[in-house]
């Protein structure tokens, strides 16, 4: 990205960095994404291991927040049951825009091992909230978590903020 190259050599050109405001805002948002403290089942243990010193999730700029009002994205780690699904929807609606969702593990992607006879399991969290990134695995390795985070950062850095409607209409026409 042009902005980051400029930041590496700050004194070339007299200490002035030129870039678009959109790039600046997207850079700020993607590199300091704060997540909601939300662990459901086994994938949450891998998540805790990833926060620890060996894999160190915090170097992506993420900090755990306990309240959904202060969080930027939610990582749904673990099986979503029907009893819990209503609470997840309430939590998602309490978060302020812009917000993102990462679905971790096969249980929240598609129901996981409980897809066939589970009478109390919701077959995928994308049936109730919109998901941005899916991370497969049962449970996924911490390296897969990091790849998912990098994908989310890429997605945010390409987002349109100004003239959003025009850009989306142009994309639809091209497709």
């Amino acid at each position: 990205m042009g902005l980051l190259n400029r930041l590496d050599n700050p004194y070339e050109g007299g200490g002035i960095v030129l870039g678009t405001v959109e790039d600046l805002l997207n850079w700020g948002r993607s590199k300091s994404n704060w997540y909601l403290h939300f662990g459901l089942a086994c994938c949450a243990i891998e998540f805790m291991a990833m926060n620890a010193s060996h894999f160190d999730f915090m170097r992506f700029g993420t900090i755990p927040r306990t309240s959904p009002r202060q969080a930027d994205f939610i990582m749904v780690t673990g099986t979503v049951t029907l009893k819990m699904a209503e609470r997840i929807k309430i939590l998602y609606e309490q978060m302020a825009e812009p917000k993102y969702v990462i679905s971790v593990g096969s249980c929240s992607n598609c129901g996981g091992p409980y897809w066939e006879h589970g009478y109390h399991v919701l077959k995928g969290v994308d049936k109730i909230i919109p998901v941005d990134v899916y991370i497969p695995g049962c449970p996924p390795r911490p390296e897969a978590f990091e790849e998912g985070m990098i994908q989310l950062q890429k997605k945010i850095s390409q987002q349109a903020i100004f003239n959003k409607r025009k850009k989306l209409a142009a994309e639809d026409k091209n497709q």
């Binding site: 009893k83 409980y114 006879h117 399991v121």
Partner: peptide, 22 residues
């Protein structure tokens, strides 16, 4: 009950070997 994944119902539909991952 927020993580009730119906493990005992699953065991009746699977063989003895397939139960181990659950």
């Amino acid at each position: 009950g927020y993580l009730h994944r119906s493990f005992e119902k699953y065991c009746e539909q699977l063989t003895y070997l397939q139960v181990i991952p659950y």
